[in-house]
Write a protein that binds this DNA or RNA. Structure first.
Lengths: 363, 363
DNA sequence: GGTCCAACTTGGAACGTTCCAAGTAGGTCG
DNA sequence: CGACCTACTTGGAACGTTCCAAGTTGGACC
């Protein structure tokens, strides 16, 4: 039997680099981690040797002995929601920039056919097994209590939802109440009075958006017109909610949905009901995803600056990893209204119209 | 200084389990890996001890010493494309089922603002660092040569694109040529003759779909009407391509786009050009994503059974991991046409209409 | 009652890092 | 010129698994 030559296939180790650079393996380790206390000439020698050998530090070995793995997990509530991907992308960029912080994404898989999306503990377990240094949660993940239990002491930052239930976790949220107020202000300015809200059920986000709706309606003296039809974040939910509402006999001229997906569903239901959009019914969304931009849909929506939120969240997570015991803080990002065709027409009602709300200009 | 008690925070190790079960650590290792040569009573004892301690095998340690990490990487060409997510979800389910095979997903980030999406070597590098046992590539990833180089000898299965350029990789593809033929057959049956194709540029998928278009057109005696307008997989691309085409003076009654996203873009452009859809212009897509289902869009599309493809790909990868040197095979999955409103009307042209193509029934 | 075999078990040596405590230069100061 | 300090360097011991070669059982068979 020929002697097995270790040569060509074996990945170079830190020791190989050390030998080639004529230093100790410890020094190589220091250089690879970017520690500052290495003399410049040695640093360069090591870097060159590493480059020549094509050395990459073995992640498994690192995370076995190090306190930190240099890796962050991302848990998205719904991979299908385009908003999530906007955020995830921004997170990826920000973390990549923060040297050494590698990103790997994973997801909560909605339990397929079955109704309720369940928290997939297997996936989070896997992330923990990988010894991620922190976890970014994107969107409203179901079953907070369970989540808190599974993540244990891991630093966590939530994007686009509240951090309630999670001890010492930060949250980056769009100022959902303010955003929804913008929507209502806009609709009222357009002359709408019978504005209903699709949403209100579920986590903080839904609750806040509903609150913003109520606040604005009340502020405009339309407290009597408040209608909140329960609705989740999905297209299907929006469709069902709108159908139920339109069927309810109570007249409605505008539908403010809690997100774009639901708004699109609502538009479908309205079209099915024979309504002419937007002439007979205005519909608005939230998140300003690419769906809202599509010309066939052209949905007035609230732009929460998803990219900015993702980036901020990434930065917060880095800080939290550095000092895990800091109390959790919640960041509210001011949203901005994007007006499109779905709310473009004023309803046929004429003279009773109020002038635009002067507050609008303040935003 | 109080003595630091190792107790509560330390994760239990294989040794703790061994001690509690009264066996050696090696045996625990055997049990945790599900090896068959362990006596039943000991297996149970170990399993119970592990459960009581809440033991989970340390992934880093495992992959440091084992040949296999029990992890598979997923590389999606475009996280934004809803089709990718359909596939990724199916892959996740299939791998989870295949005991021990954990899934973590990662992505090629399109190089943000810049035009050309670039292959993000950092991400693949990260996956390799994690010592994934195999890689699933979802969609048409740019720069195959580079990809081949970066993945090295890793087992790879490509879903929704060809495996060219990758040595010994399997591919699972929709039968793109056949699918596009279905589309053209359908449009011709509806009376269309001036059917143009948006696509043809880029990888195998685009090429195949264009080929199917040409084949079907020729088969229907419409070789003279063949028009292929270069177009990528994005909404924007579809929009630009359609605009260019409609501007070109050559009359067109139907647009067969290479995927749903491009089709939606094309619909936008057509609407901008003042065309009444679908009365004046039929548009079709490919992939049958949720976009196609939206009632405002209601896009005739080809359903490639994305979930089935994902599942098949996962199974193939497991096989390939088991025997890496097997030559690569390509699986073609038969697609199915889903007719919706976007192609629902026949064009205004009257008497010259041909009867439906009898082949249609064969499919 | 011994021998042999199959069916399990086991201790110890990796795996490639990081951490730590203990070095070693090369100056500076008295 | 030696002591001392600062600024780096270094070898060795973890980290928690898997792999391997070498056990140890307990029957079955002669």
């Amino acid at each position: 039997m020929a002697e097995q030559v270790a040569g060509p296939l074996r990945r170079p180790t830190i020791r190989d680099v050390a030998e080639r650079a004529g230093v100790s393996k410890s020094l190589v380790s220091l250089v690879m981690r970017g520690e500052p206390l290495v003399r410049e000439d040695k640093r360069r020698r090591v870097e060159q040797a590493a480059a020549e050998l094509g050395y990459r530090t073995n992640w498994a070995a690192r995370s076995l002995s190090a306190l930190r793995s240099g890796t962050v997990g991302v848990l998205a509530a719904d991979l299908r929601n385009p908003w999530s991907m906007d955020v995830v992308e921004a997170i990826g960029r920000a973390l990549e920039e923060a040297r050494l912080a590698t990103l790997l994404t994973s997801a909560v898989l909605p339990s397929s056919a079955a109704g309720q999306p369940r928290l997939d503990e297997g996936v989070i377990g896997a992330l923990r097994d990988l010894r991620v240094d922190g976890l970014l949660v994107v969107g409203s993940v179901p079953d907070r209590a369970r989540l808190a239990e599974v993540v244990g002491g891991l630093p966590v930052v939530v994007v686009g939802a509240g951090a309630e239930g999670l001890a010492r976790a930060d949250a980056v949220r769009s100022d959902d109440a303010a955003g929804m107020e913008l929507v209502v202000d806009h609709l009222v300015e357009r002359g709408h009075r019978q504005v209903a809200h699709l949403g209100g059920a579920g986590g903080t986000v839904a609750t806040e958006r509903a609150a913003g709706y109520r606040t604005a309606m009340t502020r405009h003296g339309l407290a009597g017109e408040i209608v909140v039809q329960p609705c989740d974040f999905s297209e299907d939910g929006g469709s069902r909610a709108a159908a139920a509402l339109l069927d309810g006999g109570r007249p409605v001229t505008a539908l403010a949905a809690l997100n774009d997906l639901a708004a699109v569903g609502a538009m479908s239901a309205a079209a099915d009901a024979g309504l002419d959009l937007p002439a007979e019914l205005a519909v608005t969304g939230y998140d300003d995803t690419f769906l809202a931009e599509l010309r066939q849909i052209s949905l007035t929506s609230v732009n929460p600056d998803s990219a900015g939120m993702g980036e901020l969240a990434a930065r917060l997570l880095l800080q939290r990893i550095a000092s895990p015991d800091r109390p959790g803080i919640e960041h509210l990002v001011a949203p901005r209204l994007v007006v499109r065709a779905s709310s473009g027409q004023r309803p046929s009602g004429g003279p009773g119209m109020r002038p635009p709300d002067p507050r609008e200009a303040d935003r």
